[in-house]
């Protein structure tokens, strides 16, 4: 019979990147130094689990069937940006330069881990993109090989339906000095180089 302490440590290990030692440290912290914080955490997890579902349109977490962002009439419904995670969606939101809608995959295709189109429920995405107002799909999956494979998969399917497909450009970070940028990034920026036309 595990003690409540063992149970808490074991439970904390479900967090990504948390091993036995960190879990133990967290448990001791919560019980010893911050019991109010621990109570708040317990209540917040409980509340989130009971009130949050996936938005029927963007698949992100939402309290309502369709989330506030998806129901915002000020957003451009002809554009749908596909991202891997809610964190990626927030990263794009922070740019204040995108006014379209999103679809959050909640993962990426990873053939060698057995995560395929079925596991990622890509049919749901295709159904979402079938909405008549959608004109362009912006693929903003990560620039890992798995992110690229995911983008390619979606692009093949979406192009067949006559929608415009775009991919986030990859390149040297803004303000980045070539000397300090890793060579793989520079190499791919070179491949994706663009013509500078006189304006």
């Amino acid at each position: 019979m595990p003690t409540p302490l063992d149970e808490l440590i074991e439970a904390l290990r479900c967090l990504p990147g948390v091993g036995a030692r960190s879990a133990q440290r967290m448990a001791h912290h919560l019980l010893q130094r911050d019991r109010r914080g621990a109570q708040r955490l317990a209540r917040a997890i409980e509340a989130a689990l009971t009130t949050l579902t996936h938005c029927a349109r963007c698949n992100a977490f939402s309290e309502t069937t369709v989330c506030a962002r998806c129901s915002d009439p000020a957003r451009d419904a002809t554009l749908v940006c596909v991202v891997e995670s809610p964190a990626d969606m927030e990263a794009i939101e922070q740019t204040h330069s995108y006014r379209g809608l999103y679809y959050v995959l909640m993962g990426r295709l990873s053939p060698l881990d057995g995560i395929g189109p079925k596991e990622l429920e890509l049919e749901r995405l295709l159904e979402r993109l079938a909405a008549p107002e959608v004109r362009e799909v912006v693929l903003a999956t990560n620039f890992t090989n798995e992110g690229e494979a995911t983008a390619h998969w979606i692009a093949e399917r979406v192009r067949a339906r006559g929608l415009a497909v775009t991919r986030l450009a990859r390149g040297v970070p803004l303000g980045g000095e070539l000397e300090y940028v890793d060579p793989a990034t520079v190499a791919h920026a070179l491949i994706d180089r663009r013509r500078l036309d006189a304006t």
Binding site: P111, L112, H152
Partner: peptide, 25 residues
Amino acid sequence: DWAGGVPLPQGRALWCGYYLNELVL
């Protein structure tokens, strides 16, 4: 160290690359 000189395979070629990796693994 990155040896360089090879762009990432694109599109279907990338999927074929995964196939090679899975075969070897």
